[in-house]
């Protein structure tokens, strides 16, 4: 599976009522930025490795966290990992993220479904966690 193929496919696709906008970010590892219609502030970043497709969306930065409530927030995030469909919380450096990992054998529909679910989960997660954020 190539980022370019995905990009072309998604750009021409409306899935579950959503349109997509794609852009390839070139680097040592190519990243496909997918913006779902209606979730423009929360782009999903896809990177493809040998055995999985990682879909990541950035939630908030460490600097946005109310440091007094930080431990409680981490607790809640850990507990919410399982109830959240298809996605999990993680952190990359000082960015809190929500992500889903897919098999490289996934269909375009699976990937599209994952991306939309990720956006919806991201919005829900931020809404649920606003008390912990500045």
């Amino acid at each position: 599976m190539q980022s370019q193929d995905l990009s072309l496919h998604f750009s021409n696709l409306t899935f579950e009522g959503y349109g997509f906008e794609c852009q390839i970010i070139q680097g040592e590892v190519d990243v496909l930025q997918v913006v779902v219609e209606g979730f423009e502030e929360l782009p999903v970043y896809l990177s493809i490795t040998e055995n999985q497709i990682l879909c990541i969306s950035y939630l908030w930065n460490e600097s946005e966290v109310d440091q007094e409530k930080r431990a409680e927030m981490l607790d809640v995030m850990l507990e919410m990992n399982i109830p959240m469909p298809l996605s999990s919380f993680s952190r990359i450096q000082d960015q809190y993220v929500i992500f889903g990992a897919l098999s490289t054998h996934s269909s375009f529909d699976d990937i599209a479904h994952e991306i939309i679910t990720l956006c919806e989960n991201a919005v829900e997660a931020i809404a649920a966690m606003t008390d912990f954020l500045n």
């Binding site: 970010i25 070139q26 680097g27 040592e28 590892v29 190519d30 990243v31 930025q33 970043y45 990177s47 490795t49 040998e50 055995n51 999985q52 990682l54 990541i56 990359i92 450096q93 960015q95």
Partner: peptide, 20 residues
């Protein structure tokens, strides 16, 4: 090996995103 490669890939991807 996948763990290593995934970690590397995520960090490289993050670098690409922040550069962008």
């Amino acid at each position: 090996l996948n763990m290593i490669k995934t970690t590397e890939s995520v960090h490289k991807a993050t670098a690409a995103i922040s550069d962008n």
